[in-house]
Simulated assay, not measured.
Amino acid sequence: MRSRRLLPGLVTAAPALAAAFAVHALIPALPAMTVAVALGLLAANLPGTAVWTAGRARPGLDFAGKHFMRAGIVLLGLKVSIQDILGLGWPAMLLISGVVLVSFVGTYLLVRLFRLPQETALLVATGFSICGASAIGAMAAVRRIRHADTVLPVALVTLCGTLAIGLLPLLMQPLHLSPLAFGAWTGASVHDVGQVVATAQTAGTAALGLAVVVKLTRVLLLAPVVAVAGLHHRSNHRSHGSGEKSLPPLVPLFVVGFVVMVALRSTGWLSEAWLDAGAGLQDIVLGAALFGLGSAVRIRTLLHTGARALSAALSAWLLIALLGLAAALLMTA
C-alpha cells in the first residue's frame, strides 16, 4: 500500500519538525522554517542518516516536500488581509508591485547570466521576488517543473533569507533608517514571511507591523504571477501543437485555495483563535515540507553548480535589497 511507503518518511519528519520549533523557541531570531531546511540538509549528508533519507524514507519525504508545501500555500492565504494591504495606499502598493516586477525580471536575467538552467532561473526569481519556498512550489506546479529541480532554488532562497536576518539590522544605523523605513525595507526585500518577522522585530513593533503588511502585499502577487506563468506555458503548448488534454492548468487548485483563504480572511468572519490555529497548522505542514526538500540536497551534487548558483543568488539578493531600500525610502519619506 502507498501509505506504508510514505510512513517512514513522514515519521522521520515529525521529530525534525519538533526540533526546529524547539530551536526557534530557544533562539527566536532563527525562524523554524529555516531550521527545518538546515536539519534536512544535515539528515541528507550525515553518514548515519544519509542512507535512510535516500532510501526507505524518501517516498514520504518527497510527499511532504510536494503536497505539504501546497497545503502550506493554501493556509498562507489566511495571513493576507486585503484591508491591511489597501491601508498602505495606492502609491505604496504600486511601488511594491514595481519592486516585485523588476526584481523578478532582474533575478531571472542574473541567474541566466551565470549559465544556470532556465527552470532554475524561473524558480529562483519567483522565490526571491515574492515569498520564498512557497512561491517556488507554486511556480513549479504551474510550469510542471520536476520536484527534484526545486531543491536548489529552495536552498538558495533559504540561505539568502537567513543572511538578511543577520545583516540587515546591522545596516539600520549606518543607513540612518527610521524604524518605519527599516520595516518597509525588510518587508520589500526579505524573502520568507518568517524571515521578515525575525529581521523586522529587531527595530520594534512599528517596524514589524509595517514589514508584515508590505511583505503580505508581495505575497498577494503570488496568484497573478502564477496565473501569467500558467497562461504563458499553455500558450507554448498550443504553439508546439500539443493536444488540449496535455495542457497544464492555468492556475493550480492549491493557488485557487490560497485566493479563497485570502478572501475568507478579508471578510473578518474568522476569529483570532481560528487565524492562530491556521497559522500554527501552516507552520507544521510547511516545516515538514521544507525538511523534506532539504533532505533531498546532496552537498556533493551541489558542488558541481554551487559556486555559480551561490554567486547568482547573492547578486539577486543584492539587487532586491537595493530595490527594496529605494521603495522603502519613498514610502516613508
Score class of each variant (00 low, 15 high):
51 V>K: 15
211 A>V: 08
152 L>I: 07
190 V>K: 12
116 L>M: 07
115 R>C: 08
260 V>R: 10
333 A>R: 14
115 R>N: 15
46 L>H: 02
249 P>F: 00
79 K>Y: 02
174 P>G: 01
107 T>D: 06
189 S>E: 09
251 V>G: 08
61 L>P: 11
282 Q>F: 01
29 A>I: 09
130 I>S: 05
37 V>A: 10
218 R>V: 00
174 P>R: 03
199 T>Q: 09
157 V>P: 15
28 P>S: 05
324 G>T: 01
42 L>G: 13
31 P>Q: 03
135 A>Q: 08
115 R>K: 14
137 G>H: 02
238 R>G: 04
321 A>T: 12
118 Q>L: 12
33 M>I: 11
133 A>N: 10
54 A>C: 01
85 I>W: 05
151 V>K: 02
317 W>A: 03
140 A>V: 04
11 V>E: 10
162 T>N: 12
267 T>E: 10
28 P>E: 08
218 R>P: 07
167 L>H: 03
78 L>F: 12
94 L>S: 07
85 I>E: 14
36 A>D: 09
265 R>A: 01
315 S>M: 14
13 A>L: 11
112 R>C: 05
113 L>D: 02
163 L>P: 09
166 G>V: 01
98 G>T: 02
33 M>D: 11
113 L>A: 11
126 T>Y: 05
307 A>V: 07
293 L>Y: 01
209 G>S: 14
105 V>Q: 06
167 L>R: 06
175 L>Q: 07
117 P>H: 06
153 P>D: 08
175 L>T: 00
57 A>F: 03
163 L>Y: 01
167 L>V: 13
40 G>I: 04
206 A>L: 14
217 T>N: 13
71 A>E: 12
56 R>E: 15
188 A>W: 08
140 A>C: 08
95 L>R: 13
194 G>F: 00
59 P>R: 09
66 K>F: 03
214 V>P: 15
14 A>Y: 03
36 A>V: 05
278 G>Q: 10
228 V>Q: 12
22 A>V: 04
14 A>E: 08
194 G>T: 02
25 A>V: 06
270 L>N: 08
265 R>N: 14
290 L>S: 09
218 R>N: 03
80 V>K: 07
170 L>N: 04
234 R>E: 10
